[in-house]
Design a protein around this nucleic acid. Structure first.
Lengths: 224, 224
DNA sequence: TATATACAATAGTATTACTATCATAATAAA
DNA sequence: TTTATTATGATAGTAATACTATTGTATATA
C-alpha cells in the first residue's frame, strides 16, 4: 500500500525532548518498541534500552520522564496512525455498511506490516497495543495525566468511529461507548484468542479470522 | 441480603501459605485490598503493606511469592464470589430474559456492599476489579501462569454466563466471546465513565445507570 | 572564533523486590 | 508436662530499578 513516510505531531507534553528531532531520539522509540515487545512493559527498563542502543540511561531520560511516558508516546503514535488509516481507507467508500466493515477490519488486523528498516516494527507495535495499552490509562494518576490531553488521539479515534456509527444508524443512543467497546474488544479478543482461548469461541488450530467475524457480527446485530 | 460469611477455596498454587488459615494471613489480604485501592497496584509494595499491618516484609513474603500473586488471589476471590452470586440470584428465575438482565446488573453494579468489619471492603474490591484486573493476565508470563490454572475461576464465570446466553439464543455462534466481552466491557465502561467520559455516552452529573443501560441494550440487540 | 547544545561517562541516592538467618512466641505432639 | 514443630518478628543484606546530578567533549550554530 503506502510507501511514503508518515509522521505525526504528538502532544508535546508527552516528552521532554522531541524524539523525532534527533537520530538517537528515533532510535530510542524504535528500539523501545522492540524491547517492550520482547520483555513486556513490566520488565522493560531505561537501563536495558540504553544498553540496547549503546547509549546511557541519562540520555533516555532527557527524552522521556519515565517509561510510562514513553509507552504513552508509542500509543499516541498508534492512535494517530490508526485514525489516519481510517480516514485514508474510507476516502472513497460511500456504502455505509462497507465503511463500518473496513473499520472493524482495521481494528482487528492491526497496522499493515511495513518494509522500511527505519520505521517501527508494526508486528511488535500491534502486539504492544494489544497487551500494554490498558496500562497507560488504568493507573492511579489517570486524572492528572488526562489534564495534559495526552489521550486526545484515542478520544479522536473513538469519536471518528462513533461518527461513522451514528451515520450508519442515527437513532442509536451509544455511538461513543460502542466505539470504545469495539476498539477495546478487538484488542482483548485477540489477546484471549492467543493466550486464554477458553474465554473465546475461536476455533483452535488453523488460521481464521475469528475476531473480525465476532466483532462484525455483534456490531451489525447491535445496529440492525 | 446475605449476612453469612462466604469463603472459597482458591487454587493452592496462588499462595505459598493459605492466608485464610491464620489471622495475619487474613489481615494481609484485607489490608492489601485497602492499600491497592488507595495507592494503585503500581505503587503498592509488600513493604508498605507490612508497615500498614505492623508486621514485616518477610511475613508477607511467606504467604505470597510477590504482589502479582496477591492481586491474582484477590481477583480469584472476586471471580468465585461473582459466580456464586450469579448462581444465587438466578436460582428461582426462569424467564430467560430476566436471567440475562440479572447478570448484566451484577456485572455493572459490582459486589453488594458488606457491613461486617472483618470481610473485604466491597467498594474497594469493585474498584480494584475495574482498574487492576487486566494487569493479572496482560503480562509476558501469561502462558506460564495459566498452566497453574489460576484463571479457572474467570473461565468458569465466563462459561456460566455463556451458558445463560446459549440458553437464551441457542443459534448464537459466539456465547463465550460475548460473555468475556460483557465482563470486560462492564469494567472498562465504568472506568471510562469516571475518568475518560469522552469515550462513553454517559450523561454527566447526576447519578445514572448508564453502564447497565448500554450493556443491556447491546446484549439484547445482539441476541435479538 | 565564540557559544550553545547534545551526548557519553560517571557517580550517587532512595526505593523496590526480594533472600537469608536467628531468636522467640505460640501451638501441637509425645 | 515436656518436647518438637511452626509462625512470626527482628534484622541484615543484595541486586535491580528509577531516578538526579556533574563534567568533559564533540558538534552544530552565530
Amino acid at each position: 500500500m503506502m510507501d511514503f513516510q508518515v509522521s505525526f505531531k504528538v502532544n508535546e507534553k508527552i516528552y521532554l525532548r522531541d524524539p523525532e528531532s534527533t537520530e538517537i531520539g528515533k532510535q530510542i522509540v524504535k528500539n523501545a518498541i522492540d524491547l517492550i515487545y520482547e520483555l513486556g512493559f513490566e520488565h522493560f527498563t531505561f537501563k536495558k534500552l540504553a544498553i540496547h542502543i549503546s547509549s546511557t540511561e541519562a540520555t533516555v531520560y532527557r527524552y522521556f520522564e519515565n517509561k510510562h511516558r514513553l509507552l504513552l508516546y508509542i500509543l499516541n503514535w498508534y492512535w494517530c496512525y490508526m485514525e489516519f488509516l481510517v480516514d485514508f481507507k474510507l476516502q472513497n467508500i460511500t456504502v455505509k455498511k462497507d465503511r463500518l466493515q473496513i473499520i472493524v477490519s482495521l481494528l482487528t488486523h492491526g497496522l499493515p506490516e511495513s518494509t522500511g528498516q527505519f520505521d517501527y516494527n508494526k508486528k511488535y507495535l500491534n502486539h504492544i497495543v494489544i497487551t500494554e495499552s490498558n496500562k497507560v490509562y488504568m493507573v492511579k494518576e489517570v486524572a492528572e495525566i488526562n489534564k495534559d490531553e495526552v489521550f486526545k488521539p484515542y478520544k479522536d479515534l473513538c469519536a471518528k468511529i462513533a461518527s461513522v456509527i451514528a451515520d450508519y444508524k442515527p437513532s442509536y443512543k451509544f455511538p461513543r461507548s460502542l466505539s470504545s467497546t469495539l476498539i477495546e474488544t478487538a484488542q482483548h479478543q485477540q489477546f484471549f484468542k492467543s493466550y486464554l482461548p477458553k474465554l473465546t469461541d475461536s476455533p483452535t488450530g488453523k488460521e481464521n479470522d475469528f475476531v473480525y467475524r465476532f466483532i462484525a457480527d455483534f456490531l451489525f446485530r447491535t445496529l440492525a
